[in-house]
Nucleic acid binder design. Structure first.
Lengths: 128, 128
DNA sequence: CCTAATAATAGTAATCGTTATTAAATTATA
DNA sequence: TATAATTTAATAACGATTACTATTATTAGG
């Protein structure tokens, strides 16, 4: 019902997410945006991140360590979680939707999709 | 260093998890155990659930809606999340470890494993 | 270009799930 | 049984997130 109005703060958040590979947490976004809008409030950051996630413009990543991160890349893709340094990275890989059929084989409900996180050691941590 | 001593409360929690298919949250466990030990404290429940999860005797399930649930079945297996009623179920299915290789193909780090949740409509919700 | 309507904000308080603290109770050991 | 160590209940504290509210920013119409 209510019309979405423009806001510089929301635009800055979107812009930041679009240009970083960091997969930042809400707090990390807050820290960054404060450099441009020093008195943006944390609540504004949370509200806009959820707003954008609801609209499908950004992705919310429920990492397995309890932390929530955000990804400016809206298109579905898989994520990698480094068990060593805790970083989160996008994975370039083909679809694995065939696993839905495997799961469906002995299940009497209806499987519509899956969420998969891969974990291990990131490229940087492998070098050390 | 420290030796683990027996406690009836911990035993009751383990017992409860071993015999339920509910995949309860910490609070649900608390509610149940209170029927046996009316003045068990929520902190005791949390401490023991984490203790058991650390020892690998139970599993901690980080559902994608932000809630954490527990599973008395220690052996690795996949879970199903119902988008309709929110229930969590065990899936009987073969290993899909081959997806690790798919993910590794264009990744310069080292993929050691994956966490996958399947979602859709559970058997009960399909009937309605 | 003003003005009115309304959405978004900053600042703050409140909430929720979880963890930390501590004196007392329980369990293991000698 | 006495002693040492662990676990508990009760409560306080914590961190992440959401709710509230008066003020500010954005937008549409005259």
């Amino acid at each position: 019902m209510s019309v979405t109005k423009y806001s510089r703060q929301r635009e800055a958040i979107k812009e930041y997410l679009a240009h970083t590979k960091e997969h930042p947490t809400a707090d990390m976004v807050y820290m960054q945006i404060r450099k441009i809008y020093p008195n943006i409030s944390l609540g504004t950051v949370y509200r806009n991140l959820n707003f954008l996630a609801d609209k499908g413009e950004v992705q919310k990543i429920d990492c397995q360590d309890g932390s929530i991160r955000f990804d400016g890349k809206a298109e579905p893709h898989y994520h990698f979680l480094c068990k060593n340094c805790g970083c989160v990275k996008d994975l370039e890989m083909e679809s694995i939707d065939h696993i839905n059929e495997i799961a469906n084989a002995n299940f009497s409900g209806k499987i519509e999709g899956h969420i998969t996180y891969f974990y291990g050691k990131c490229p940087e941590c492998c070098e050390d």
